[in-house]
Computed example of a mutant assay.
Amino acid sequence: MPETPRPPLPPFTAETALEKVCAAEAAWNSRDPERVALAYTEDSEWRDRDVFLTGRAEITAFLRDKWRRELDYRLRKELWAYTGDRIAVRFAYEWHDAAGRWFRSYGNENWEFAANGLMRRRFASIDDVPIRQHERRLTAPPSVPGA
């Protein structure tokens, strides 16, 4: 059965690439693994740090585990570049562990999309920096999508 298209579809323009980034940010900030996983093809390939995943089931399990460890997660994504069926973003997110230690995680992602607008490849490089709670910057949802 064909997967339901997920507009905007490639090839991307500046406007549609930004729309895709904003939609991804909103989905990830929901911290709903099933919702997030629906943006990826059934056979999507991921690299997240040193973890390699294939398919929605693995992605969903990974995200469930991520958000059990990374509490009060808040993310911002920024469009970095786009062309055809690819988008590059940079991002920062903040979270704390069960012991109350806060972190800001910075990184870059490279995305490749299928013709139906679902992401078929996601490669993420991420670094974590310990912060104090009063150093948090991402405490509220953005006032402008993708900001």
Rank of each mutant, 00 (worst) to 15 (best):
G117L: 01
A92T: 07
D85F: 01
G100Y: 13
N116C: 09
A98C: 04
R68Y: 08
P142A: 04
V129P: 05
E70L: 15
R74M: 15
G100R: 10
F52E: 15
D127L: 12
L38T: 03
R31D: 06
A114M: 04
V51H: 14
N29Q: 00
Y82R: 00
G117C: 05
M1Y: 14
R31T: 14
R31H: 11
A99L: 14
D32I: 09
A115L: 03
R47G: 05
A24R: 01
H96P: 11
V36L: 07
G100N: 07
A27G: 10
Q133T: 11
Y106S: 05
A24D: 03
E135Q: 15
E42W: 02
R120D: 04
G84W: 00
M1D: 12
R136V: 08
A115F: 02
V89D: 00
R121Y: 00
P141Q: 06
S125C: 09
I87L: 14
A115E: 01
K20A: 00
R86Q: 14
A124K: 06
R47E: 11
H96V: 03
E45A: 11
T13Q: 10
C22E: 15
H96Y: 12
P130S: 09
D65A: 14
A147E: 15
I87H: 07
A57H: 07
E58F: 05
W67H: 15
R76M: 06
